[in-house]
């Protein structure tokens, strides 16, 4: 990968940062409560994917590296999912009582 392409990725990251800032100034709660967080996370996720694929060379790496990269996201998903199963069911009470 050559320097202009790296700069291209860098530009994507800068645009992402500006977008994050802009999105934070608009109240998106009219879509659903917490939509702002979701948008911010989506942008962050895209930026992070760019960093991993290009700056960290995962894109050009053998399958085993891909597997370990994907596995770490799978583990992150486990952490989020099992934590959320607590938060999302906490207010239901004990067997709907």
């Amino acid at each position: 990968m050559n320097i202009p392409r790296y700069l291209g990725v860098f530009a994507v990251l800068v645009v992402g940062t500006i977008l994050t800032y802009y999105a934070a100034t608009v109240d998106l709660d009219f879509i659903f409560p917490g939509a702002n967080t979701l948008v911010a996370l989506l942008i962050a996720f895209t930026k992070m994917t760019c960093v991993m694929l290009f700056f960290m060379h995962v894109y050009w790496s053998p399958r085993l590296i891909w597997l370990s990269a994907v596995a770490s996201f799978f583990w992150l998903a486990i952490m989020f999912a099992y934590t959320m199963q607590d938060y999302l069911t906490r207010d239901i009470g004990v067997f709907m009582q």
């Binding site: 099992y82 199963q85 607590d86 938060y87 999302l88 069911t89 906490r90 239901i92 004990v94 067997f95």
Partner: peptide, 10 residues
Amino acid sequence: GQSIYAGLVF
């Protein structure tokens, strides 16, 4: 104070 349902799963 964790949800009882999460507790069941864990």
